[in-house]
Each structure stands twice: as structure tokens, then as C-alpha cells.
């Protein structure tokens, strides 16, 4: 590299952007699976499980993602566990996303009206059946807009993987800048790419939210 911004630089950035998308998907899937467990644990009938899950959420939500990244990438090797930048970023994001999605989803599960639980209980469904057949299908609808909205947070947060040297979009920008020293131009391009990734998802989340609001309004008019 060197000289002025050319096609090679742009393709390097595009490659980084692809990894931003890839890392976001890893975080969404990993954090989603773990977050689902966290959400269920938060409303578990077993007190110890609830407390444990609440402690996990409090701890992670009280710690910057950046510190979690440093902890996994720099903190584990001295203990004899070596991790690649990708592994460190994936694990950190999963831990982080699980705490936030877990809380969001717990809220959604709890916002299904109590009477739905009672009606399912009255029909002799077991706790698992109540959850799987009555509560979760309704909670998923409630959860869709905020989950889509949180995907924007995930994409933005993958930029922090740059601090452990993982070459996603932000790190790609840094590397090019080190060669060209055109910071303003390069970071504007980087920002525009992030915006292009995030904005449609933000919009989608708002549209879904509005649809849900309308659906609810219609329902309440009809049953009033």
C-alpha cells in the first residue's frame, strides 16, 4: 500500500466489512443461543438458577465490552489458554450479547399477560408445554422488533474486535490509515459503510415496532 487511496484499499475495506457482517452473525447466533438460556434461567422456578442468571447479567452489563475483549485476548494466554483474535472477539461478543438479549427476551416473555399462563395451566398443560406452545410463540412476536433493533448494537460493537487485532471494518480502516495517513477520508468511508449496514436494520426495527403497535391497537378496540 502507500500513495493515495486506490482500488486495493477499497477492496481491503470491503473485505473488512465482510468480516464485520460475519462477526455480527457469529455474535447474533452465539449470543442468541446463550441469551435464550439466560432468559429462561432468569424466570426459572429454581431460585438459585434465577440468582445466578441475574448475577451474570449484572456483571456483564456493568463491564465494558472492550474490557471483556482484553480479558479474553490478553488475560487468557498467561493462564495457558491461547486464543486467536477471531476466537477472542467471538467469545467476548457472545458473552456480551447473551446478557443483553437475555434481558430483552426475559422482558418479552414476562410481558405475555399472566392470564395466558393461567389459561394454559387450567388446561393441564405442563410447564414446558405452557412455555413452548403458549408463551414463547407470543413472546417471539413481541421480541422481534427489539431483537432486530439490537442487531444494530451488535454490528456497531463488532468494531471493538479491532482492539485485539481482528481485521474487521474498523481495523481495516486503521491499517489503511497507517499507510496513507488520510484519517478523515478513510474514517468517513468506514462510517458510511457502517451506516449502510445499520440504517436499514434500524428502519426495519421501527417499522416492525409500528406494526406491532397498530396490531395491538386494533386488538384492544375489538375486545374493548
Amino acid at each position: 500500500m502507500g500513495g493515495s487511496l486506490n482500488a486495493n484499499h477499497l477492496s481491503f475495506l470491503a473485505h473488512g466489512a465482510l468480516w464485520t457482517v460475519g462477526l455480527s452473525l457469529i455474535a447474533l447466533i452465539g449470543g442468541g443461543l446463550a441469551g435464550f438460556v439466560v432468559a429462561l434461567a432468569r424466570i426459572s422456578p429454581v431460585r438459585a438458577v434465577r440468582i445466578l442468571a441475574a448475577g451474570y447479567v449484572q456483571l456483564v452489563q456493568g463491564t465494558p465490552l472492550l474490557v471483556i475483549m482484553f480479558l479474553t485476548f490478553f488475560g487468557l494466554p498467561p493462564l495457558g489458554i491461547t486464543v486467536s483474535p477471531l476466537a477472542a472477539a467471538s467469545v467476548s461478543l457472545t458473552i456480551y450479547v447473551a446478557a443483553y438479549l437475555g434481558e430483552i427476551w426475559r422482558g418479552c416473555i414476562e410481558s405475555v399477560p399472566r392470564q395466558q399462563w393461567e389459561a394454559a395451566e387450567g388446561l393441564a398443560l405442563s410447564r414446558t408445554q405452557r412455555m413452548a406452545k403458549v408463551i414463547l410463540p407470543q413472546a417471539i412476536r413481541i421480541a422481534t422488533p427489539p431483537t432486530v433493533g439490537f442487531m444494530v448494537q451488535i454490528i456497531k460493537n463488532t468494531s471493538l474486535a479491532s482492539v485485539v487485532g481482528f481485521v474487521e471494518l474498523a481495523r481495516a480502516g486503521q491499517i489503511i490509515n497507517n499507510a496513507l495517513f488520510e484519517p478523515f477520508l478513510i474514517y468517513v468511508i468506514v462510517a458510511v459503510v457502517y451506516f449502510a449496514l445499520c440504517y436499514p436494520i434500524s428502519r426495519l426495527s421501527r417499522v416492525l415496532e409500528a406494526q406491532r403497535g397498530r396490531g395491538r391497537a386494533r386488538l384492544s378496540v375489538e375486545t374493548a
Binding site: 444494530v152 456497531k156 460493537n157 468494531s159 471493538l160 479491532s162 474498523a170 480502516g173 474514517y187 468506514v190 462510517a191 457502517y194 451506516f195 445499520c198 440504517y199 434500524s202
Partner: peptide, 8 residues
């Protein structure tokens, strides 16, 4: 809201 703090 649609760009990362780090880049900002």
C-alpha cells in the same frame, strides 16, 4: 446511532 462510537 448507526455508526460505532469507536469510529466517531
Amino acid at each position: 446511532r448507526n455508526t460505532p462510537l469507536l469510529v466517531q
